[in-house]
């Protein structure tokens, strides 16, 4: 459904020194540097897949999304979405995709969302009965009702986002590009949006590519994630696979019968914390069973849990430490 092959985008940006002198020098003698926003990214997304696109700010996520939707022209490489070359922005292509940007809105500010929906119905050539049927279905899925007839400026952020989604999906797109769709929403609204996206994906077998800063969005929706870092794709696979690849360790929490003294646990693994009779240790995965055996044999263990480290932490570490470099 979405194929990218060696997709690259570089910009020429002005290289200006700060301050008045820098400005003057820049005025007379312009210096430019080339920024590679996306570097040879290749991937293939099958119909119906929900893929999470992760990366820190400025990693190139939005640039990549814009190339996939046809808003910007790739410097190099090729893209195909739903069998079309996006940049031609042919009507047949545009009718099959949608883009939702959490920080930009398309609804008319002074008018109820229903007016924007009427306009979108006309633009996408959907007749009135069909449009009404779709609006009713989507509104029910999103639990929207009189919000649709209130001026958009009077809606809360969560209500507005739900209306935005409705407007973006009225034409039954097959491919959804979602850039931070839950940005700034409270926990309840986030959950509604997530549930809705999951239902929509099931019902329409739509392909979804989503970026988000909220790990909960990704874990709730995506079986597959792509990590992008400094413009390069550093990981493409299942969410669990990230742990195996970037976090080959587990967190072991043991509770002993007696208070633990400092240094006592150092031989088992990297000590995270000691609190009375409870210790938290980081243990390499290949040493896990051995360590657990030793603990049970050598110490008076009351309770023990072994968990994966939180995925946010792992991904955060990947991006800050630059494991990929």
């Amino acid at each position: 459904m979405i194929e990218a092959d060696n997709l690259s985008k570089s910009y020429r940006v002005a290289d200006k020194q700060p301050g008045l002198m820098g400005t003057l020098r820049h005025f007379f003698r312009r210096k430019h540097k080339t920024v590679e926003a996306v570097k040879s990214v290749s991937f293939n997304i099958e119909p119906g897949e929900v893929v999470g696109f992760l990366g820190p700010n400025g990693a190139g996520k939005t640039t990549a999304l814009k190339m996939l939707t046809g808003l910007i022209h790739p410097t190099d490489g090729s893209v195909s979405v739903a069998g079309h070359r996006p940049f031609a922005r042919k009507a047949a292509f545009l009718k099959q995709i949608t883009l939702v940007m959490g920080q930009k809105q398309q609804l008319l500010w002074d008018l109820p969302a229903s007016e924007s929906l009427r306009i979108n119905a006309a633009i996408y050539d959907i007749d009135d009965t069909e449009a009404k049927r779709r609006i009713d279905t989507l509104a029910e899925m999103l639990s929207l009702d009189e919000e649709l007839t209130k001026p958009v400026r009077k809606l809360s952020l969560g209500e507005r986002m739900k209306c935005e989604l409705l407007a973006a999906l009225l034409h039954n797109p097959k491919v959804l590009f979602l850039d931070e769709p839950t940005l700034g929403l409270d926990v309840n609204a986030q959950a509604t949006v997530r549930q809705f996206l999951r239902d929509y994906n099931k019902e329409h077998e739509a392909t979804v590519l989503l970026t988000s800063h909220y790990m909960a969005d990704i874990t709730a929706l995506c079986e597959r994630v792509m990590l992008i870092h400094k413009g390069s794709l550093i990981y493409d696979g299942s969410l669990d696979g990230i742990l195996n690849q970037f976090a080959p360790y587990r967190e072991v929490k043991v509770e002993l019968a007696e208070p633990i003294t400092n240094g006592q646990m150092d031989t088992y693994g990297e000590v995270q914390s000691i609190d009375g009779r409870v210790a938290r240790l980081i243990v390499q995965r290949d040493a896990l069973t051995r360590t657990v055996d030793r603990l049970l044999a050598e110490r008076d263990v009351c309770d023990m849990t072994v968990t994966d480290p939180p995925i946010e932490e792992v991904i955060g570490r990947v991006f800050t430490d630059g494991v990929a470099d």
């Binding site: 808003l71 922005r89 545009l94 009718k95 995709i97 883009l99 940007m101 930009k104 398309q106």
Partner: peptide, 13 residues
């Protein structure tokens, strides 16, 4: 300014 031209460009019109 607001970047909403993107939405206009993605409409089949």
């Amino acid at each position: 300014q607001q970047g909403t031209l993107d939405y206009v460009l993605l409409k089949p019109i």
